[in-house]
Amino acid sequence: MMMYKKLLVVLGLLLVGAVSYAQDDAIGKFFGKYVEDSRFSVVSVSPKMFRLFSKVNWDTIPADLRQTVSKLQSLRIISTETTPYVFYKEALAKIDMREYEELITVRDKNDNIRFVVKESGGIIHELLMIAVDKDGFTMMSFVGDIDLDKLARLSASMDIKGLEDLKNAKRKNK
């Protein structure tokens, strides 16, 4: 039965343009030229790598996270410390809003974060986070079959230690 589901997902992908398999996340589409730009740091995890995850030891990974990861196909992050607000504006202008739908906007005095999604047939195929503050600009794209509810709940179930780790990780990435 799982096989069938997989088959249907693959066919569904074909129907909706399939391209999510290749370069065509929002970053590739609208910010592709910056992927090779030395001002940007980039993290990519390709569909090929996602397929290799089945060979990895999952014991330390919480079940809800496991589920979410298993439905993803690719991840890409680009970020820069150079003129963050300029790139933020460029991102907002370039993203084709006929394809992407605005989901959440967070604005407080330190952060400015937007989430946009690409949806068809009730399934979210891509979640794109665009974030800016005075220290940097980041775009993060998840491609796959994304359950927003589950994703939002992930952090709620996280303990304080997890949060601390994250902060450190974020700093290290910069």
Binding site: T68, I104, T105, I113, F115, M129, M158, L166, A169
Partner: peptide, 13 residues
């Protein structure tokens, strides 16, 4: 890590 960052930010919103 990326998922957790996204999740945390979503939560904020």
């Amino acid at each position: 890590k990326a998922l957790l960052i996204a999740s945390r930010n979503m939560h904020k919103g």
